[in-house]
Amino acid sequence: MPSTHDTNGPGALLGNPASGGFEAENHLQGFGGFHGGLALALLTSATQSHVPDLELQSVTGRFDRSIESGFTVASSLVRAGRTSAVVTARAESDEGLHIEASAVYGRPGEPSWQPVAPAAPTAPPPDECEVFAIPPEFVPISASMQIRPVGSARPYAGGPDPELIAWVRLLEDDNAPDVLRFVFLMDALAPSYAAVLSQLVLVPTVELTVRPGAGLAKASSPWILLRARTLAASAGGWINEQIDAWDPDGTYLGAAHQLRVVRAG
């Protein structure tokens, strides 16, 4: 189900990312700037070149300011040991530092230990769920994705529970997500805390950590099922959110954690 704008969409960009510099083109914008998950995926791509024989275990991005124009990416190897390595990357522009990321890589190891993973929530298949249309003038990058919510919860609908569950995919092609697409898609949903809000306020990301699971290497569908849940929220507006992902066959694909903050003004 390719789209008509797949030649320079996020999937194509991640499949062959340019080195060094990027333009914050309008179709790659999220809410208020270059999409955060896409930016973190590009930084992750930059870290991969330092450790081509290792697998990403975790990447954390700290978002200092939104990206609204061209930016450059630089990366460096911090430490390389027998079983793991740490690589950092930065997104900068003339305005200064925008995002600083730190990635942990490791060797997969022998399959000697009992795996543990959360079970997928009960959900009908994607084609039985209605499309949640986000106006592209509001979030331009949404034109490259399709989101099909599971259940009745919606962002800013004043619901009782700070949780959102939805099927998500890129529309550019029918490829299953690789590591870079996974990092991007883990930031595809609205903040789960928005499910209990009844007015439109910003809940931007301050820090995003993505941890791919072993099942991601066996993913066979472009669809992933995301469950985003606010674990805790302070009266001051700081949000602790967890996001889990599964393949349509129930295989656990990995997790993300977001630190967000509500900005009413």
Rank of each mutant, 00 (worst) to 15 (best):
N240Y: 10
A24E: 11
W238E: 10
G21H: 14
R181Q: 11
C129V: 08
Q57R: 15
G32H: 01
V206K: 08
F22V: 09
A123N: 05
R82I: 10
G96S: 06
I134N: 10
P222C: 01
A117M: 07
G20C: 01
A89R: 05
R260T: 01
E25V: 15
A188N: 04
G237C: 07
A217E: 12
H50K: 01
W238D: 08
V196Q: 05
W223E: 04
S220W: 04
E95K: 14
A91W: 09
L56E: 02
F138T: 13
Y252E: 01
G237M: 05
P160D: 12
P191K: 05
A245F: 04
A245S: 06
S3G: 12
G15D: 12
G96E: 06
L185I: 09
A41S: 11
T122I: 14
E172F: 00
G20I: 01
L77E: 10
C129T: 08
M186I: 03
S198M: 09
L170S: 14
R229Y: 09
G20S: 03
P126M: 02
L77K: 09
S45D: 14
Q146Y: 04
P118C: 06
F132V: 02
L28Y: 02
G9A: 13
T47Y: 01
A123C: 05
L216M: 00
A123R: 04
V87H: 02
G37T: 02
L189R: 05
L226F: 09
V87L: 03
L259W: 05
S19R: 15
S192V: 06
